[in-house]
């Protein structure tokens, strides 16, 4: 049981990081980016190609993250322009349609160019014992990187001027404009950050299990679930929700069956909407 929970926490940290990139974009104006998981896959393919081209792994990982960040910025500057001109209801629908379309395009192109593509970063070494449970070295690294980035993100949003500016747009966009903040500039930056986080998740996930060309949809779904449970727009909420859901996922996969765990997670999201619509930390 201890091993299952520890595994779940490590899995959940990754969920949390994944959720942050989805929840911030949603909080900043109601767009659920359904191409989000494809950004991770894009990064994975870039990293894999760069490594097979002889680039050192760390450099390749940075390149992949930059590629996904660029994809995020380009999405904001192109398809999102007409979306943010719409009022709230139409904005949500148009945003869903356009990002879903983009998801199909990215997945289609990647599958066509590199049908067997995928990323596995194997880190050798004997498993490390944590609380008496042996954990693979790759998982330990993935968890440490995720934790470190999570702390940086929390501090960034709590204590920096730009971070507070982002939160102000989430809480009251008009109020933010009145203090001199450009919501559209904030959105562009956060779309870039969101892409970078998707890319980072691709890298950390591939340290524990392969990420393949067809894995994007699942990542999008996980990110959505984490966003809903954590509270839309909340970084701390995303991490807490991610860890909780990671444990739930691992426990249900172990004791019931892996086929059930996705359904359990979706159930948790649905329950959150019914019982506490603003999520764990939402405002």
């Amino acid at each position: 049981m201890k091993a299952v929970i520890l595994d779940g926490i490590i899995l959940g940290l990754g969920f949390g990081l994944l959720g942050v990139g989805m929840t911030l974009v949603y909080g900043l104006g109601g767009v659920l980016n359904l191409a989000y998981g494809e950004f991770a896959v894009l990064a994975a393919i870039v990293v894999a190609q760069a490594i097979s081209g002889g680039m050192p792994t760390v450099l390749a990982a940075v390149l992949g993250i930059l590629a996904a960040a660029t994809a995020g910025v380009l999405l904001d500057l192109s398809l999102m322009r007409p979306v943010y001109r719409q009022s709230t209801g139409h904005r949500v629908l148009l945003g869903l349609m356009l990002t879903l379309g983009l998801a199909f395009v990215i997945e289609g192109v990647l599958t066509w160019r590199d049908p067997l593509g995928g990323l596995t970063i194997s880190i050798g070494g004997k498993p490390i014992s944590i609380l008496g449970v042996p954990i693979a070295v790759g998982s330990v690294w993935a968890a440490l990187i995720t934790l470190a980035v999570g702390v940086v993100l929390l501090v960034f949003f709590a204590a920096t001027t730009f971070g507070r500016g982002v939160r102000s747009v989430i809480q009251d966009e008009l109020g933010a404009r009145l203090v001199g903040i450009s919501p559209s500039l904030v959105r562009t930056v956060i779309f870039g950050l969101s892409g970078a986080l998707a890319g980072l998740v691709a890298v950390t996930q591939s340290m524990t299990s392969p990420l393949t060309v067809s894995g994007g949809f699942n990542l999008t779904v996980y990110a959505l679930i984490v966003s809903v449970v954590g509270g839309l727009g909340s970084v701390a909420g995303a991490f807490l929700a991610g860890i909780l859901l990671g444990i739930v996922d691992d426990v249900s996969a172990r004791y019931i069956g892996s086929y059930i765990s996705d359904i359990v997670l979706l159930g948790a999201a649905a329950l959150t909407i019914l019982v506490r619509p603003r999520g764990l930390f939402g405002s």
């Binding site: 507070r164 939160r167 102000s168 809480q171 009251d172 109020g175 009145l178 405002s283």
Partner: peptide, 11 residues
């Protein structure tokens, strides 16, 4: 300062 104030309520 608009009549509806537009503060950041959770801050």
């Amino acid at each position: 300062v608009p009549a509806e104030r537009h503060l950041f309520p959770a801050m």
